[in-house]
């Protein structure tokens, strides 16, 4: 597992039924591109977050395929429809097999 990986998400606490809300997410990760060389001229192996997903009550909101060209500390902003109260689940997939998860509840009404 890469060091110091920490997800951050911003989701409003409340919404009206069917409202479209904006979500921002960021995870601390170096996103080593596999293109850089170390001081001895050896390629530093690629190590990135290669996929990010957001689901709400088991239904998908967005599923992003990520390549090394996404910046350090990958940031995503997108919109979600909120049909009912429930929980957003966020998942980041690391090249090294680690999976980072966090979730945020939202209340409708």
């Amino acid at each position: 597992m890469a060091k110091g990986v920490k997800p951050r998400v911003r989701v409003p606490k409340k919404a009206a039924a069917g409202e479209i809300i904006t979500i921002k997410t960021l995870i601390s990760h170096t996103m080593e591109s596999g293109q850089r060389k170390d001081a001895d001229g050896n390629i530093i192996p690629r190590s990135i977050i290669n996929r990010f997903t957001c689901d709400f009550n088991g239904q998908n909101v967005i599923d992003v395929t990520i390549e090394p060209a996404v910046s350090t500390n990958p940031f995503f902003e997108f919109e979600a429809k909120v049909p009912e109260s429930g929980e957003f689940k966020f998942t980041w997939y690391d090249d090294d097999g680690s999976v980072y998860e966090t979730s945020k509840p939202i209340t409708v009404g």
Partner: peptide, 12 residues
């Protein structure tokens, strides 16, 4: 503060 990448380090 959410957009500001420095806050990753503030969290640390």
């Amino acid at each position: 503060d959410f957009d500001n990448p420095a806050f990753v380090f503030v969290d640390q």
